[in-house]
């Protein structure tokens, strides 16, 4: 990208920020929630994309970090009477530490083995949250005391989304991001060309864990009740993956577009057909993988509407 293009994108993002700041005052409480959760999925898809899209390590367990963030917030607010904002930081740090601990061994696996190992890691985290009664209240879940105005969480999510977009954009268009791409394309060659793959993968993995944790924390304070099945729900991971795939893995705009489209579609259908979005998800996975493996952005690139590559 040229400097002019970066500037244009920055202006676009600024315009989005202004619009999202004014917007809630014009919305009903329900619609405000809808926008909040759409933004949350943008955060989740963009984060998943850092390890799975840029780096090529498809994670089926990213919900673990989301759940950890949600629990960090819920426990500290409900049991330790913290203000909810600093708990987001605790969740982020905790998720980063756990990402390093899980990532170091698991990132040695490749392809389906990594995906399955992450699925196991997320399930393991859910079990720990269910069994560790004294800390997490186990299967009963945690109710949060709240003085929520719904604006607080809304603005927190706007901020988180903007930060996530800026970071994902920065990573994607930097030589750090290009080197992650190189690992995705051919890890052996990348190593032979001087890239310390272990270190880069761990950095990408940790980065991709931090934002979902914060999102989980905001979500916990938004809905005021969490339990293990809700915040370690495997479908949240699938949503991250599917949104990124639909929009275009390994790009920055792809996961954003995918999240907005899929979450909106889900919201429109579930009111009338409570399970329809699940069927639609299944169908979508098949269709996207078969006909559009590189997503909408890939399609736009093939048509010549968008340039190839991240650095120009």
């Amino acid at each position: 990208m040229t400097r002019g293009e970066h500037l244009r994108n920055l202006v676009l993002l600024g315009a989005c920020a202004v619009a999202l700041t004014i917007l809630p005052h014009a919305l009903t409480v329900y619609r405000r929630s809808f926008v909040l959760f759409t933004m949350m999925y943008v955060v989740l898809a963009l984060s998943w994309n850092i390890i799975s899209g840029f780096t090529g390590y498809t994670s089926f367990g990213h919900v673990a970090f989301y759940g950890i963030g949600a629990y960090a917030c819920a426990i500290l607010v409900a049991d330790y009477r913290w203000h909810w904002i600093p708990t987001l930081g605790v969740g982020a740090v905790l998720a980063a530490l756990i990402a390093v601990v899980i990532g170091y061994p698991v990132l040695r696996l490749k392809g389906p083995y990594f995906a399955i190992a992450m699925l196991g890691a997320a399930e393991g985290t859910r079990v720990v949250a269910t069994v560790w009664d004294s800390l997490t209240h186990g299967g009963l879940g945690i109710s949060l005391p709240s003085a929520e105005t719904s604006l607080e969480t809304y603005y927190a999510m706007v901020t988180l989304m903007l930060v996530t977009i800026v970071v994902a954009y920065g990573v994607g268009h930097s030589r750090f991001g290009i080197r992650l791409n190189a690992i995705r394309e051919d890890e052996v060659a990348a190593e032979a060309l001087g890239i310390n793959a272990t270190l880069y993968k761990l950095a990408a993995f940790t980065l991709s864990a931090v934002f979902p944790a914060v999102a989980g924390g905001i979500q916990a304070y938004k809905v005021l009740y969490i339990d293990p099945p809700a915040v370690f729900f495997v479908q949240i991971t699938i949503a991250m993956a599917l949104m990124s795939m639909l929009g275009g893995k390994g790009t920055v705009i792809g996961p954003i577009v995918g999240a907005v489209i899929l979450y909106t579609a889900q919201e429109l259908t579930w009111v009338n057909f409570p399970t329809a979005h699940l069927i639609a998800y299944g169908l979508f996975i098949v269709l996207v993988a078969r006909f559009m493996p590189r997503g909408l952005v890939g399609l736009a690139i093939d048509r010549g509407w968008v340039r190839k590559g991240m650095i120009h």
Partner: peptide, 15 residues
């Protein structure tokens, strides 16, 4: 073993 889904320029810069 070039990086197939990266541009020629990106292949170079990654090193």
């Amino acid at each position: 073993r070039i990086f197939r889904e990266m541009t020629v320029l990106e292949n170079m810069l990654s090193v």
